[in-house]
Each structure stands twice: as structure tokens, then as C-alpha cells.
């Protein structure tokens, strides 16, 4: 074919792409924070033992775990604001969609971690006369946290990848920035290859660090 690659076209616009990557990371961090906060509440509701709390939380998590994130991006960007005659900036809409949906997944991570602690641990704490809250804080959560670490990291990575859907709301994250560069340079092959490479480098190196930390945590746990 004799196609001549021209990565210089990308390099000239590196600032746009890097700014986009910065927005991607910002949206990711905020999304994780919101997701963890709401997910914690949902997990507590599901573990409360009260149906009036656990059933709504169950319905919420099941709904958001079984519907595509893109629908929620549009729902929060176009649907909700328009119904109330408002407009929402793309970042806010994307954050709401990401936060709510990842909350459903984080809730399952938290719940799974807590349920994985053996009943003997609960009994030993209760036998000492510990109240529920103290038992949770001193005995259960420290053990559950270790087991939550791996699925938590996995979920966070999924979230980072999902932030790209905000491009469909014209939010200037990595992919949207890439599209902007493509319209200026007509170099989709180079631009999108670089974008894939960027994501790969960020996510793969982060996953290697996470794996290393996890292995270290396991060794520390087996002291």
C-alpha cells in the first residue's frame, strides 16, 4: 500500500491530546469518589437487614448493573435537565452518570468483601461484648478491605475506560480531543493509534502497580 505514517501531525497537537487526557483522569477521579460514596450507602442499606432499606438498594444496583452506561450519559445530559427546563454541563452530566452507575458496582464490591469475612469473626467480636458499629470498624472492615482491594481496582479501571463515553456529550476528554485533531489533520490512523497507546500505557502500568501493591499486601497479611 505504501502508506506513509505521519506521527508528527499528532505530536504538533500533543497539547490538545494531553489536556484531554487530563480531563479523562479528572473525570475518573471524581467518578470514583462519587461512586464510592454512594456505593458505600447502598452497601450499608443492603446489609442493614431491613427490607425497607435493602430492597430499594437491590433494585437500584441491579438496574444500573444491567443497563449500558451510554444510556445513562444521555439520560443525565439530555433527559433529566430538559424535563426540568435546565441545562447541565457535559462534565456534570457525565459525572452523575458515572457516579451513579459505578456506585452500583462499588456497592457489590463492598458488600462482597464484608460478607466474605467468616461468621466466626462476628461471633468472636460479639462474644467480647462489642457493639455492631465498633465490631464493623475494628474487626470486619480491616479484614474486608484487603479482600475488596482487587475487585475495587478492577472496577476503577472499568470506570476510567467508561469515561470515554463522555465524548458523546462533547466533553473534551481524550477521545473528543482526538476527534478534534483528526478534523484538523486528516490523520485518523495516527491519532487513534496514539490514543489507544496512551490508554494502554496509563491502564497497563497502573494495573502492574496495583498487582505489585496487592502482592505486597498479601505478604504483609500473612505475617
Amino acid at each position: 500500500m505504501g502508506y506513509v505514517w505521519d506521527f508528527f501531525a499528532v505530536a504538533r497537537n500533543a497539547d490538545i491530546l494531553l489536556a484531554g487526557l487530563g480531563q479523562t483522569l479528572l473525570l475518573s477521579v471524581c467518578g470514583i469518589a462519587v461512586g464510592v460514596a454512594i456505593g458505600g450507602v447502598l452497601a450499608a442499606m443492603r446489609l442493614s437487614g431491613r427490607r425497607t432499606l435493602s430492597w430499594p438498594a437491590l433494585a437500584f444496583t441491579e438496574f444500573y448493573r444491567n443497563t449500558p452506561p451510554l444510556v445513562h450519559f444521555f439520560w443525565f445530559f439530555y433527559g433529566l435537565p430538559m424535563a426540568f427546563g435546565l441545562t447541565l454541563p457535559p462534565f456534570a452530566a457525565a459525572l452523575a452518570a458515572l457516579g451513579v452507575q459505578s456506585a452500583a458496582f462499588f456497592a457489590e464490591v463492598f458488600r462482597g468483601g464484608i460478607l466474605s469475612v467468616e461468621t466466626g469473626q462476628w461471633e468472636a467480636g460479639r462474644a467480647l461484648g462489642m457493639g455492631r458499629a465498633r465490631l464493623m470498624r475494628r474487626i470486619i472492615l480491616p479484614q474486608a478491605a484487603r479482600r475488596m482491594a482487587a475487585p475495587f481496582v478492577e472496577r476503577s479501571f472499568e470506570l476510567v475506560k467508561t469515561t470515554t463515553l463522555a465524548a458523546a456529550l462533547a466533553f473534551h476528554e481524550t477521545i473528543y480531543s482526538a476527534m478534534v485533531i483528526v478534523t484538523q489533520t486528516y490523520r485518523p490512523l495516527e491519532v487513534y493509534t496514539v490514543v489507544a497507546g496512551l490508554f494502554f500505557i496509563v491502564l497497563f502500568s497502573a494495573s502492574q502497580v496495583a498487582e505489585w501493591l496487592e502482592a505486597r499486601g498479601r505478604r504483609a497479611g500473612a505475617r
Binding site: 467468616e118 466466626g120 461471633e123 468472636a124 462474644a127 474487626i139 479484614q143 497479611g221
Partner: peptide
Amino acid sequence: FQQFNLFP
């Protein structure tokens, strides 16, 4: 307890 149930 039979299974000790120490806090690991």
C-alpha cells in the same frame, strides 16, 4: 470457640 476465631 472451637475454631479459635482470633482476629487475623
